[in-house]
Design a protein around this nucleic acid. Structure first.
Length: 234
DNA sequence: GAGGAGATCGTCT
DNA sequence: GACGATCTCCTCT
């Protein structure tokens, strides 16, 4: 996508969301039964849903544009492959909850749990298209959205990656691991505005060494907020 | 634009 | 003690 096009489209999208942010507060969370299925089915249908963070009176929100499915104890790449531990305990609980883990000594990543209690599927949220609370997200990421010349680059860097989006939405293990994402009473939840999603593609998951060729990464084709180099985004 | 290396610490073996 | 569901910066082409 042309940089100018991205900028104008995003600004239009953002302003329309600011006008309708009251509507966001009224959106129903995606119900728990949605997650009570095979992560392979949940993952592509999670695209287009909205991850919402409440920070006091402010709402930070982004549309999910890239995910990965992890199949639990049948998946060598899953943290749950070797059974329950202190770290992955949430994955073995009921569906629709946040599994937040810490990796590479400095990053958090967030999953939503799938399948009934005892089975450990999850979907990793890899990228968001920012919709509301962009200034707060930039602040959380220690980035500056005010620089006109840097706007497009900074905008894309806000939430295009699993650790980036966690930083933007201030998601940490201490604060959010085990949080109910299917409840509007939570300060972190997933909502649906029934927006149309474009073409969806599947590819191998990123950054893993086991089951590295399983096509369990799903993303919206052509969306500029999908993570990774341009050749991986389309 | 592509590729490589360093950062940094929780988790697991 | 080794590794990792990552990101950023720097160098090279």
């Amino acid at each position: 996508m042309h940089k100018g096009t991205l900028k104008s489209q995003q600004k239009a999208s953002q302003s329309s969301w600011i006008r309708t942010s009251a509507r966001l507060r009224k959106l129903q969370p995606v119900p728990r039964r949605f997650y009570d299925r095979d992560p392979k089915l949940v993952a592509p249908q999670l695209l287009g849903k909205i991850l919402v963070r409440r920070e006091g009176r402010k709402l930070l929100a982004g549309r999910i544009v890239e995910v990965e499915a992890y199949l639990g104890q049948s998946d060598p790449a899953s943290h749950a492959f070797r059974g329950p531990t202190d770290r992955n305990r949430v994955m073995f609980g009921p569906p629709g909850f946040a599994y937040v883990y810490f990796t590479y000594g400095m990053h958090y990543c967030v999953n939503v749990t799938c399948l009934k209690e005892g089975a450990a599927g999850a979907v990793l949220i890899r990228a968001l298209e920012p919709l509301a609370g962009l200034e707060e997200m930039a602040l959380n990421r220690d980035l500056n959205l005010a620089l006109e010349t840097e706007y497009v680059r900074v905008l894309r860097a806000l939430t295009s990656g699993p650790a980036r989006l966690c930083e933007a939405l201030a998601i940490t293990r201490t604060r959010d691991d085990g949080k109910d994402l299917a409840s509007g009473d939570s300060d972190l939840w997933i909502a649906s505005d029934r927006a149309r999603v474009g073409e969806i593609a599947a590819s191998p998951r990123v950054g893993i060494t086991q089951a590295a060729d399983w096509p369990l990464r799903f993303y919206i084709v052509g969306n500029p907020f999908v993570s990774g180099p341009a050749k991986r985004r389309t």
